[in-house]
Structure formats: C-alpha cells, structure tokens
Nucleic acid binder design. Structure first.
Lengths: 124, 124
DNA sequence: GGAGTATGTCGTAAACATACGACATATTAT
DNA sequence: ATAATATGTCGTATGTTTACGACATACTCC
C-alpha cells in the first residue's frame, strides 16, 4: 500500500522506504496551491473541480495539474456527477500520511532535546 | 522573522503568506536526503560535515547542497571547529515550523471530519 | 442534432532541483 | 614550507515542476 514511487531523482531510491514515503507526502504539500486545495476540500462540502480553480489564482489547467499530484498519492478522490466532478479528501490516506509525518516530527523533537549540547560559536 | 521567500515559481506569491511559509518547510522535507540529515542531527552529538556525507549514499558536494537548503530556512546551523564544521539543528526554528505544520494538519483533520458527507461512486 | 459548459490532457517554455566532478580555500600535521 | 585533510562553491548535465493556452471529450439543455 502506498508504494508507487515514480518520477523521482536518481538517488532517492537509495534511502529508506519510510523516508521516501514521507518525503513524497512532504512534496505534495510543497506548493501553496496544493495546501490551499486540501484546505478547501477539508472545509467545503461541494468541491466541484471548477469551484476549486475559481478559488485559486491559477488557470484551470494548472489547477488540474496540482490535483493530479494529489491524486498520485491518493490524498484526494473524486466522483463524477453528470458533467461535474466532485472532489473530496481521502480520509484514510490522509490520516496515514499525516500520522506518519507527525510521528516523525515528534521523534525528531524528542531525540533532539535528549542530546542537547551547547553549540557556541554558531553561525546561522 | 522567517520571511525570505526567494527562488519560487511565479505564482506562489499569490497565495497566503502562511501557506507560503508552510509549503517552504514542506519543501525542505521533500527529499529523503534532507530528512535523513535532520534525523542524524537530532540523534547524534558530533555531526561533522564529513560524517554526514559519509552516512548518506550521496557525494560530498551533493550533501553540501542539501545542507544549503536546510540552512536557507534556518533549520540547521553550524560551528567551525578548526578544520571541521560541526552542524546541529536550530531548535527554535525547527520548533516554529514543526508547530505550524502540526497545527495545520490538525486543523485539516478537524474540519474534514466535521464536514463529512458520503461520497459514493468515487474513483481513487 | 447543436450550442454551451465542465473537465481533463497535450505541447511547450521557463524555472527549479538533483547529482556529480573539479576547483579554491583554510586548517592541521610533517 | 609542504603535504594532507576538510570544507564549500562553481559549472554543468540531466531530470522535474510549474504555468499556460489550445485541443479533445463528455454531459446538459434547447
């Protein structure tokens, strides 16, 4: 489940699958348009493809491309209603990735505070 | 603070600053090498530049480039120790972005479960 | 059937990311 | 001084992302 890693740069496969998966999720969030789409779908009930495009400062075809990116990980799904397409979040997939990421972030914070040492003379 | 948005695609500026910031953080995590570096720095005490490169399946110059990316947001900092450079996480900055992202993810989950409606006839 | 609308895909230009080797610089050891 | 080591930057090749307009397809309403 959740393992269709394609269109990645050469060396990404050399890393742990867990990190690959997480970084792909991060990639989905790595554009404000896609975060805005997720916000929209979380907030609204009727999320026709056209409505989404109208809410964003992008052309329809560009939005379609961002929707593709989200579909690639399965974060969103859609149902055809006549000539319209109603998009919505895929709760299960979203939960999966969200939990993994939150867990990772928590782990980082934990280990980091344990190993805390003084780093004087640091430049940012 | 935390507002040096540069080197972005044309339309990213058209979105809310909050989303821009978050998506930049997501971008920093959007490569397994950078997540691995963060893991390493969280776990270890001595994180010389060379040690980092040796732990990753990448050439030194490539690792340096990923370190640059993390420096760009201020997620890491380093101190010069003779001929070595000791890298470490920047706890404040990391906490800032982590909290923002976790908050956003929580918000999404909340709103999404409130507005839950049936979506039959969905294709993934 | 034919006009109008909604949607997705294709081609393409520009920008960005990734990965590497080669080079420059600074520090330590001989 | 000279050699060795550590580090960062530059140039560059390749691949990916972003953004758009144009096109093709499918559904609705007359």
């Amino acid at each position: 489940m959740f393992t269709t890693y394609s269109a990645m740069h050469p060396k990404t496969e050399a890393f742990e699958p867990g990190l690959q998966e997480l970084s792909l999720f991060a990639k989905s969030l790595a554009h404000p348009a896609r975060m805005a789409i997720i916000e929209l779908l979380a907030r609204r009930k009727s999320c026709y493809s056209g409505d989404i495009a109208q809410e964003l400062p992008l052309q329809r075809s560009t939005v379609a491309q961002h929707l593709q990116e989200l579909k690639k990980l399965g974060l969103i799904k859609g149902s055809i209603e006549g000539q319209y397409v109603n998009y919505c979040l895929n709760p299960d997939v979203l939960r999966h990735y969200t939990q993994s990421l939150e867990q990772w972030l928590t782990q980082i914070k934990l280990e980091q505070s344990e190993n805390r040492i003084d780093h004087n003379n640091c430049w940012t």
